[in-house]
Design a protein around this nucleic acid. Structure first.
Lengths: 223, 223
DNA sequence: CATATTTTGGACATTGGTGTTCAATATTGT
DNA sequence: ACAATATTGAACACCAATGTCCAAAATATG
């Protein structure tokens, strides 16, 4: 039994759960769409292209997607949500705020190397897609706040938003470096983490140490 | 006499000079296009929309633009180039690297407040438009290098690209904060500059002082 | 003022994508 | 094996945008 996407729409908001459906067809369509959006842009993907890229007939798209024009938003919030869950699941239970932040940003940068389409999508739309921004920003704010309270970061309260901008922007730009082959994920990730920690007031030597520590694998989202 | 855009195309590259034409019609078309691109996206602007927004007839668009599909690229590189020139023109002759950087990023953030369409365009496309990235990045690299050599910044040589990513990404995100009304240009600019300088190894108190200094006006490009 | 140049705005054929329908075929579950 | 369900691929009408053309009106230019 395939979940019809339409059943999960209400008041203009599509539930992310729709994509966790077990239908292999929907999965393939979403994967193909992610790639096409990343390559071609959010608006230049025609249904025929999508069908061909997913390896299905054009009619199948309409069978599974009641609102193809909403596909981009669905995929965008899905992506942010999935990554957030996996990053949380990958943190060690006793990691300090600075280490969590360093690992978090490096997860994003390493994944750009491991899954180029994923990274390209994020680089292209993280700034313009409202839903992706909010999905990615709220957990980030939590991390910064807990780090500030723990005394790891030295920020004034009103600098919270600017610190979020600092981190989000730097991570995205660093992902771009990796995507374009200008730096390895390891170097870009380490330098990104080091510079960010320094900006947040972590002493330079400590920042460097944390940024160079062994990066654990990115675990799957806990079902 | 209006410059036909086509005369300035060769080997796929449109000279920026075309836009400095004295034709008021072309100027209006470009202004309208900047706004529409920023609002609607680079691909969703139809010729009819553009004509209406510019206050001219549809035929006039075809009269002045031999290659409407190249309009986006023309405007993107034009924008980057113009801003670069104006920022350079606005630096004091004897300013130190750290002060130049602080002022440079604040110029971008203040202009986002002064010219919302300009800021929106930049936020939306700075990451995806190749030509804009290169236009904005090469002067940035110069600043960082001269600051490192002068001993103001503490970076390892291989961190140059990551430092550029840090700055470009943070400035763009901070512009977004201003564009969305979450912070004033003054606060977002100051915090952006302060955090960046700290990341580059400038002592915290010095970073704060430079970030809060009086910001001179953004001068017009020297003809 | 007379002449050259632009702009105007509507008509036109064309293209490319949309969303629907449907009978034939394939797949899946029991 | 049988029934329920999904996929296929083609046909169809439809729409929005494209680029071209052109005569009338408006605007520069000398």
């Amino acid at each position: 039994m395939v979940f019809k996407l339409a059943r999960f729409h209400f008041s203009g908001c599509a539930l992310v759960a729709a994509s966790y459906s077990d239908s292999p067809v929907l999965r393939r369509i979403h994967q193909a769409a992610l790639r096409l959006f990343a390559e071609t842009g959010a608006t230049h993907v025609s249904i025929s292209e999508l069908a061909q890229a997913a390896g299905v007939a054009r009619g199948t798209i309409y069978n599974n997607l009641t609102a193809p024009e909403a596909l981009f938003e669905v995929i965008a919030s899905e992506l942010g949500d999935e990554m957030h869950q996996r990053v949380l699941a990958s943190f060690g239970a006793d990691e300090q705020p600075a280490q969590r932040l360093a690992n978090g940003v490096r997860f994003f940068i390493r994944r750009t190397h491991d899954e180029p389409d994923w990274g390209r999508f994020l680089c292209r739309f993280a700034f313009s897609s409202e839903s992706m921004r909010t999905t990615l920003n709220s957990p980030l704010a939590q991390e910064i706040l807990s780090g500030s309270e723990a005394g790891c970061f030295h920020l004034q309260p009103q600098q919270l938003l600017s610190a979020m901008a600092l981190i989000a922007g730097t991570v995205l730009s660093s992902m771009l470096l990796v995507r374009e082959g200008l730096r390895t994920w390891r170097d870009a990730g380490a330098d990104c983490a080091e510079l960010l920690l320094r900006a947040l007031g972590v002493p330079a030597d400590e920042a460097r140490r944390l940024a160079l520590s062994e990066l654990p694998p990115l675990l799957p989202a806990t079902a």
